[in-house]
């Protein structure tokens, strides 16, 4: 099963109409996400995970406790079986957090977290406000490829959507509800895969968890970007194969260093034509292979 996250909106080809490939394309407004559905996880663990995902991308490290505790409050509520808290419910839970006698700082945390979460809610609109949905499960168990066209979303919303899908894939593969392998392709998703520049956030990465752990369960992640030097160390350090297209400057230097290219091989990197690549397979030992790829219109 292949899932493409089209973050730029140009992932298109007439080949997708081929019935043998069995590819579907879903727009952001057609998503039906129940983001607080823990996908079989313990609700406490899931609350911690979602908090970490949001905190790492929205730079909300100071509000983590607030986000976590408000989520736990939501999960403790009685509700019809099979339904989960909605995104709007979470916003109102944070906004109505008791502030009496707690000091100015808590009010600032509430403002920061509700602003960030409201932003995602406003950007995704109806798509993220479902009480129950089997969308993610059906998309991940689809026999073929699913393209999620999320270029209209903000970086934060893209990150949340990717994070939710990757987590669901990881958990569903673990409980064997879907069959391995699942390959996620992040196309031009630099905001999601780039380095963390903040000193607090440099230790955690929005999708770092699944990059390091997903391999054992059959979850593969393919990242495509135009700038190698902008990639997070978790990604460059854990990938097994690198396909290098024409690069120069810092990118060329880092590729040479990370992929153990010889001087002659590295000098070839800026001169590569659009249909040429250098492939480095790192799972056995670094070995560069030069070849040509067929042009796909």
């Amino acid at each position: 099963m292949l899932i493409f996250f089209d973050c730029k909106g140009d992932f298109n080809s007439h080949l997708f109409d081929d019935p043998r490939l069995n590819i579907i394309r879903i727009q952001a407004q057609d998503l039906k996400l129940c983001p607080l559905d823990p996908m079989g996880m313990n609700t406490k663990d899931f609350a911690g995970l979602l908090t970490q995902l949001l905190a790492s991308h929205l730079q909300l490290f100071a509000s983590r406790r607030l986000l976590y505790e408000s989520l736990l409050n939501l999960y403790q509520r009685k509700r019809p079986k099979g339904t989960w808290p909605s995104w709007s419910e979470w916003i109102s839970e944070i906004e109505s957090f008791p502030t009496k006698g707690k000091g100015r700082r808590l009010i600032e945390y509430i403002e920061a977290s509700s602003f960030a979460i409201k932003g995602i809610g406003a950007n995704l609109g109806r798509s993220i406000n479902y009480s129950t949905s089997d969308f993610v499960y059906k998309a991940l168990s689809y026999q073929g490829g699913v393209i999620l066209q999320i270029d209209s979303l903000t970086d934060e919303a893209q990150s949340v959507v990717c994070g939710l899908f990757l987590n669901a894939a990881y958990e569903l593969l673990g409980s064997q509800k879907i069959s391995a392998p699942v390959t996620a392709i992040l196309d031009d998703a630099l905001p999601i895969v780039r380095k963390n520049y903040s000193s607090v956030g440099s230790l955690v990465h929005p999708i770092g968890r699944w990059i390091t752990r997903g391999r054992s369960r059959g979850l593969g992640i393919i990242v495509s970007t135009q700038s190698y030097s902008e990639l997070n160390e978790i990604i460059t350090g854990n990938c097994s194969s690198i396909l290098v297209k024409a690069s120069f400057g810092l990118d060329q230097h880092l590729i040479m260093r990370d992929c153990h290219l010889t001087r002659e091989q590295a000098e070839l990197v800026p001169q590569l034509a659009p249909h040429e690549v250098i492939g480095v397979i790192r799972s056995v030992y670094p070995k560069a292979v030069f070849g040509e790829v067929p042009f796909v219109p």
Partner: peptide, 20 residues
């Protein structure tokens, strides 16, 4: 069958309840 037709067929199979 085009991508659009397959997508529409897929979306019809989704069971979801919006909060509203």
């Amino acid at each position: 069958m085009s991508v659009e037709v397959r997508t529409t067929a897929f979306l019809k199979t989704i069971k979801a309840i919006h909060v509203s």
